[in-house]
């Protein structure tokens, strides 16, 4: 079920077009990876979804309980990339206030805030002032503020930046839980490995335009050539002279290369001659990182 549908939105500032005719949807219980190089129009798009700025053209539709309409600020949660809290206010007060703006009663907000603080191991900080917290702790507080009202649409902008690996895992775990509870999640991140771990589908924006959109595995299928890592013994001249592979690198007894387009791994492996002994072999799709770089640098324009 689609929770958020964005149809052909455009926005320009002082004659500079930041977003051009962008469309996508986020469904219940899925995580859509929202990718793009710096300055591609990500923040502008997110601000339009949140309702902080209005698109010049196009439509943003929010569907809940069968009814559709404008974005309801009480049903969305937002962790902005620009992080900040009221430095002079206390942790618990801040959370109760922000949850109150999302429509929670004071007592309910308190109860949930305390249980989230517990979960993030910050319970004893509840009565401290925000300015006494470390950056990572403040990030947790903001994360709590984004999810405390159990939003139907959660927008996370670079949630992992600045967190240590342990806390990255904790965030990841909670994001997965929310997804399983049916929250539609839009996750913007430059950390491609995190995106690969979490996202079902991705959306890549470049120069304000959509350049990739769809199932992560399908995109990898469509864009990825196969990467082969091979530990071998014997004669490697088969590889050195092979026209069906490229980017061959040999170091020690490891050979790494890319299969040319249209070359199937199975056929390739069956053709390896006896003189080349396979000790270990792995055939992989390239990481999302490589696809991202290739698409952004190559100015590719294919939209599935």
């Amino acid at each position: 079920m689609t929770v958020l549908e964005v149809r052909g939105i455009s926005k320009s500032f002082d004659g500079v077009q930041a977003v051009r005719d962008v469309s996508f949807a986020v469904n219940r219980g899925e995580i859509l990876g929202f990718l793009g190089p710096n300055g591609a129009g990500k923040t502008t798009t997110i601000r339009m979804i949140i309702g902080i700025i209005q698109p010049d053209r196009g439509e943003i539709q929010f569907t809940l309980d069968g009814g559709s309409g404008e974005v309801d600020k009480e049903r969305i949660g937002y962790l902005p990339e620009e992080r900040g809290l009221y430095a002079d206010a206390k942790v618990l007060d801040t959370l109760v206030y922000l949850a109150g703006l999302k429509g929670l009663s004071r007592s309910e907000a308190r109860r949930r805030a305390l249980s989230w603080l517990e979960r993030f191991d910050l319970a004893e900080w509840a009565r401290r002032k925000i300015e006494q917290l470390s950056k990572g702790m403040q990030q947790k507080i903001q994360f709590i503020a984004a999810v405390i009202h159990r939003p139907d649409l959660l927008v996370l902008d670079e949630p992992f930046s600045g967190l240590d690996p342990v806390n990255q895992d904790l965030f990841k775990e909670i994001i997965r839980e929310l997804k399983d509870e049916g929250v539609a999640i839009l996750l913007s991140s430059h950390q491609m490995n995190r995106v690969e771990e979490l996202c079902d589908r991705i959306f890549l924006i470049h120069c304000g335009r959509r350049v990739l959109y769809g199932d992560l595995s399908e995109i990898k299928e469509a864009h990825g050539e196969h990467i082969v890592r091979l530990r071998y013994a014997g004669d490697a001249s088969f590889l050195r002279t092979n026209q069906r592979i490229k980017n061959l690198r040999i170091s020690g007894d490891w050979a790494t290369f890319v299969l040319a387009k249209g070359v199937e791994p199975d056929a390739f492996i069956r053709n390896i001659p006896r003189e080349l002994v396979i000790r270990e072999i792995a055939v992989e799709r390239p990481p999302l990182h490589d696809i991202f770089v290739a698409v952004v640098k190559g100015g590719e324009n294919g939209t599935p």
Binding site: I50, K73, P80, R83, G84, L85, Y86
Partner: peptide, 10 residues
């Protein structure tokens, strides 16, 4: 302090 964006989401 950049708290603005968070508040504007509400």
């Amino acid at each position: 302090s950049r708290v603005v964006e968070l508040v504007l989401s509400s």
